[in-house]
Design a protein around this nucleic acid. Sequence first.
RNA 1: GCGGGCGUGGCGGAACUGGUAGACGCGCUGGAUUCAAAAUCCUGUUCUGGUGACAGAGUGUCGGUUCGAUUCCGACCGCCCGCACCA
Length: 872
Amino acid sequence: MSSTPTAPIARYNFHETEARWQKAWDERQTFRAVMDHAKPKYYVLEMFPYPSGRIHMGHVRNYTQGDVIARYKRARGFNVLHPMGWDAFGLPAENAAMEKKVHPKKWTYENIATMKAQLKSMGLSLDWSRELATCDPSYYRHQQKMFLDFWNAGLAYRKEAWVNWDPVDNTVLANEQVIEGKGWRTGAPVERRKLTQWNLKITHFADEMLERLDTLKRWPEKVRLMQANWIGKSRGARVFWDLTDASGADRGKLEIFTTRPDTLYGASFMALSPEHPLTAELATNDPGLQRFVAECRKTGTAAAEIETAEKTGYKLPLLARHPLVPGKTVPVYAANFVLMEYGTGAIFGCPGHDERDHEFATKYGLPIIAVVARHADDDKWSEVDVQKAPFVEDGVIINSDFLNGLDVEEAKAKVIARLEEIGVGKGTTQYRLRDWLVSRQRYWGCPIPAIHCDKCGIVPVPEKDLPVKLPDDVTFDRPGNPLDRHPTWKHVHCPKCGAAALRETDTFDTFIDSSWYFDRFTSPGLETAPFDREENQYWMPVDQYIGGVEHAILHLLYSRFWTRAMREVQMTSRDEPFDGLFTQGMVCHETYRSSDGQWLLPEEVSRDGNKVVRLSDRAPVDVGRSEKMSKSKKNVVDPDQIIRDYGADTARWFMLSDSPPERDLEWTEAGVTGAWRFQQRLFRIASTALEQVPPAGTPKPASFSDAATLLRRAAHKTIAGLSADIEAFHFNKAVARLYELANSIDSAPKSMVADDASAKWALREALEIFVRLIGPMTPHLAEELWQALGHRALLADSPWPLPEDALLVDDTVTVAVQLNGKLRGTIALPKDAPKEAAEIAALAQPDLVRGLEGRTPKRVIVVPNRIVNVVV
RNA sequence: GCGGGCGUGGCGGAACUGGUAGACGCGCUGGAUUCAAAAUCCUGUUCUGGUGACAGAGUGUCGGUUCGAUUCCGACCGCCCGCACCA
């Protein structure tokens, strides 16, 4: 028998294993969350997906990260809520309806079924019993009810405003759906239209939402900054200027906003937005002005166009009286660079100290007055020539009567006080944030529960009539909103007077659907309310939210608003929905192009030496830089295929390796096979070690050999380090630590004395620790090995290992010996050795002695347990 | 223009509050195993010089603080992200 080769250790069969454990978790409802006041709760949530058809690698990365946290927290004894749902309303469903002649509902639910199966194959620790889809009337009925409550509380209103209109699709577009001035789907230049639309009063909470950003300690600084910039608070003043016509007759007041009231004495013109009501009024009998306004409207909103667009103005037949300088008047223009949406739609021009005003004044030959001088030493200052270029720095106020000699900040306060005193202005705060326009002329969205009655005006749909359900029998043969042309749906009776009336045919922006789904997860299926107060109180807020940084403003801002709106109508007492936020990086891949410019899929090309060729004809391929995976550039890898070829654990492991989770990850074939090989290697290491370890439950030996202690130290240090890494989202470092422990376990048997029972016990201990530590990352392999180790309970139900403190510190340390700050050698010292001993040992270190060349040390710096630096 | 981030081997990336730069992985080198290959195992791998012990250089560039700087400060160069005619 000795000539018979030992049977090769079986390869890890991930197909069979992963399916088996997924079934086990499913059957035992392992991840079902139930309220339990005896345990601390932990709510882990990843941004729910839009059911576009198939999951992509971005999803895989997002849900893997969330699953690591969820499984880890669960092992640490938390009552974890980790739900999943579908952001199921939206434009792509309608586009599919038009292009593929399939009903949006059918298309959406089929996609959900496909994607759910894909997510299940990843082995995520999700509570699927709480699954929801926002397109389900049982979900959106509550949304409609909340909207009515907000309306009632004055947080929802209709207003006429300039909106982005796609002339091909015949619908309003959100700002984010306008890319470089064109509709994102049609590519048609977006028009500006004045329409009456529904808005939510997000500005009501502008200041609170800004202030509270500072308290979101577990949010990325970057996201908080982006939100702060978006809200855009600036302090300044509103100033009223009396207008006259050329003959001096009174023409009313003009209100402007400025952040630089200190430069009021430098005013040389006034400028109105082309969309300002006064401009419109004057245009009625001024064809030249009409042409000017029309011209301004044509200018695109693209950054490049704005940058290069010349400042142009149209002189109005008006003069403005300076509020502080009796007798002084300045001309009034309509100007293309003044935005109606910000401030009051009117400004005063101070060309001496503003780039834009300077350009305008130069063009129209207006006076340029210096009112701020450069601050010099002491109380001195030097005037700056502002004729060629404006002086925009802080300085000392000059040529400004009672403000002279003050610095900018002092002058602002003083001039505001004076304006208020004489009643021509007041200090104010201005926000960049605008109210949230939520109407969409689209079918596949939540109907807005309102009725238009000729007699009663806009009437809310009575609560008993909710939900206003979307009709199924609609057609997509023409562009525009199918609800609007539905034969019967919109014809109703007014709930107030009973007369014939029309239903609102706009639907809500889908960002509303995603503004409260995390609350709904606390009470899925509840019919009487959006959520049960007690359940909601128990589970909310979300402890850890994970998603892409592309939602830094929109979704996260809207959700923060919706939470406050619910508070306003006494549904909750909460201010913020997300306690912790993590924004993950994108998944990228090289791009490939054939010589005729066609994009190629990664699976269509092959590396041939150092060249890349097309598989079909070996033609050379241009390799482009790594970019975010996108269908349009075809640089996508299908998660399904990866899971089929390598298994879910491999995909998960690769997603966590190497790249820090907040940074972009480059998907490579080599990386995946590397991850796969490690899974196989682990299985082999464990199988080999299992042959040597004592049975489960063998008592801990009274003493340990050196080899045993070495391994135990490695294992216990890994517990401590890995726990810290996971808490800090350093998954790449956690992976590196696990490689190290795997290497230790692998080499341990080789250095083990044959009959060292303590080392064998330590080997089992290290293996058990290792298996528990990989549990959150590669749960299937971990369960398999856990069972192989002789455990009957699921690893998913087993607690996280705790390190023995005594094993976390070494009793000897390696101390570096430096000569003039340069490393010469190292010495081994007992931990916490006295400084004197360290110095003596260091000065005896042979490499140092040689380096000293007989010189006497001038000074010796000893940093305990770290370094001894000898200075000569 | 404003705001923010980042520059470390051939590559992805480590390095706690200033204390042995390059952990871990990929790739590559040489070797073992094999008829051969794949897989696996062992060895080496920042650069330059040297057979070698070793020496010198080195974290975008230039300077500063310090016994000691990837880390702190100043100036510059490059890349990335967000916002942008916001008064």
